Simulated scan of single mutants.
Amino acid sequence: MQHDPATGGSALERRLIELETRLAFQEHALAELSQALADARIEGGRNAELLRHMLSDLRKVRTELYADPADEPPPPHY
């Protein structure tokens, strides 16, 4: 091991410190990404539930508006 008096440590020690610093940064970034993914999944679940409710409400409104199938307008391709 070479001791560098100017920096107070060997090249190996400096490299180890740099690798530990990078590892700590990567662990922090991974934790942030994990939390962001968890938040996105929760939001996606809320959005899916909201969409289900909206579709249910739309079916109810459509049923009320067109109780008689003869009153329903033709599809757009006619």
Results as ranks from 00 to 15, higher is better:
1 M>P: 10
1 M>L: 10
1 M>D: 08
1 M>N: 10
2 Q>A: 09
3 H>I: 07
5 P>M: 07
5 P>C: 04
6 A>V: 15
7 T>P: 01
9 G>I: 01
9 G>H: 04
10 S>F: 02
12 L>A: 15
13 E>W: 02
13 E>Y: 04
13 E>R: 01
13 E>N: 06
14 R>Y: 13
17 I>Y: 06
17 I>W: 07
17 I>S: 08
17 I>N: 11
18 E>C: 07
19 L>D: 00
19 L>F: 12
20 E>D: 12
22 R>H: 09
23 L>M: 08
23 L>D: 01
24 A>N: 07
24 A>W: 01
25 F>R: 06
25 F>H: 04
25 F>T: 05
26 Q>F: 02
26 Q>N: 07
27 E>F: 04
27 E>D: 14
27 E>L: 11
28 H>V: 00
28 H>I: 01
28 H>N: 15
28 H>M: 02
29 A>F: 10
29 A>R: 08
29 A>S: 11
30 L>T: 04
30 L>M: 07
31 A>P: 02
31 A>Y: 03
32 E>A: 07
33 L>C: 12
33 L>K: 12
33 L>S: 08
34 S>T: 10
34 S>L: 11
34 S>N: 05
37 L>G: 02
38 A>K: 10
39 D>T: 11
39 D>L: 12
39 D>K: 07
40 A>H: 08
40 A>Q: 14
41 R>S: 03
42 I>W: 03
44 G>A: 14
44 G>F: 06
46 R>C: 10
47 N>T: 13
48 A>G: 03
48 A>N: 08
49 E>F: 15
49 E>W: 09
49 E>R: 15
50 L>A: 15
50 L>K: 14
50 L>I: 10
50 L>G: 04
50 L>Y: 11
50 L>H: 13
51 L>T: 15
52 R>W: 05
52 R>E: 07
53 H>V: 13
53 H>W: 07
53 H>F: 11
54 M>I: 15
54 M>V: 15
54 M>E: 06
56 S>V: 04
57 D>A: 15
57 D>W: 14
57 D>F: 15
58 L>C: 09
59 R>W: 02
60 K>Y: 12
61 V>H: 11
62 R>P: 01
63 T>W: 02
63 T>Q: 12
64 E>I: 04
64 E>G: 01
65 L>C: 14
65 L>T: 05
66 Y>K: 01
67 A>S: 13
67 A>F: 12
68 D>R: 13
69 P>N: 10
70 A>S: 10
70 A>I: 03
70 A>E: 07
71 D>T: 05
71 D>H: 13
71 D>V: 03
71 D>R: 14
71 D>K: 13
72 E>R: 13
72 E>S: 14
72 E>I: 04
72 E>V: 03
73 P>F: 03
73 P>R: 03
74 P>V: 06
74 P>S: 09
75 P>Q: 11
75 P>G: 14
75 P>K: 04
76 P>A: 06
76 P>F: 02
78 Y>W: 13
78 Y>S: 08
